[in-house]
């Protein structure tokens, strides 16, 4: 367990009576990219929200050696950040203000290095620097995603969790986003990546979990999973087989 940054054991989340995630085990080793893929509604977003503490859940979450399950704010202070599916930017505020707020917990804890972090983020996303005074709400889809990732990096996270970073983006921009994800790993950030875009995610990840109906259906080396024919079935359904079952 010592080599893992994050260990999740037996995580269950229920919305009322419906269990959206049940008894899920998942680990992120230091310095690796782990991806969780699966069709819509499999419970991927729920899993991330529960890990960071936005949703109440049961089970153990050991992050960076501590397993006391504090609230979201404390989790962020410890070095876990989440780039949510909806991005959740501060639309009426400038890009630079959005980025600075990413460092809120670090500034509160007394670190005064946000100027250099900001320079690093700008180096990674030159477009954000060009538009730093512009309101976040005026950005295009791809730029918004970059801002959301940049904002999360301002916290100098140990674990960066990305929820559907390619959602709704054109293929060219998706490629750019995944290039950056690979670059971040080279810099030593551990990443937990939730994606619907299975092919791109499996190409960049070390390890993969396939989630279906709130439970892990398969897991293993990303390359092995990518080669598994059951992936296609899980995503698109195989007509002939099920037609008989449903019609009968």
């Amino acid at each position: 367990m010592g080599s893992n940054l994050l260990d999740v054991k037996g995580l269950s989340v229920a919305y009322g009576k419906v269990e959206a995630v049940s008894k899920l085990d998942l680990s992120v080793p230091h310095g690796s990219i782990v991806t969780v893929i699966g069709p819509n509604g499999a419970g991927k977003t729920t899993t991330l929200s529960a890990i960071i503490g936005l949703l109440p859940s049961t089970g153990r979450i050991v992050f960076d050696g501590a397993d006391d399950r504090p609230d979201v704010e404390a989790m962020v202070a410890r070095g876990m950040t989440l780039v949510p599916e909806k991005r959740e930017l501060f639309g009426s505020m400038s890009i630079e203000d959005n980025l600075l707020l990413g460092a809120f917990q670090r500034c509160r804890a007394g670190h005064r290095d946000h100027a250099t972090t900001l320079a690093d983020v700008y180096a990674l996303f030159p477009r954000l620097k060009e538009r730093r005074a512009q309101a976040a709400g005026t950005l295009s889809g791809g730029e918004r995603q970059m801002l959301a990732v940049g904002r999360a990096l301002m916290a100098k996270p140990k674990l960066l969790m990305l929820d559907e970073p390619s959602l709704g983006l054109a293929p060219l921009i998706v490629r750019e986003i995944f290039r950056i994800i690979a670059e971040l790993r080279r810099r030593g950030v551990s990443i937990l990546l939730v994606e619907q875009n299975a092919r791109a995610a499996l190409q960049v990840a070390d390890h993969a979990y396939v989630l279906e109906n709130g439970a892990v259906k398969m897991q293993g080396e990303a390359q092995a999973i990518a080669a598994d024919p059951r992936i296609v079935e899980s995503y698109l359904g195989l007509a002939s087989k099920h037609q008989e079952r449903l019609a009968g």
Partner: peptide
């Protein structure tokens, strides 16, 4: 201001 604009986003910033 961030809290006013987007409470969830603000929580995720701590």
């Amino acid at each position: 201001r961030a809290t006013a604009v987007n409470r969830n986003g603000a929580r995720l910033m701590g």
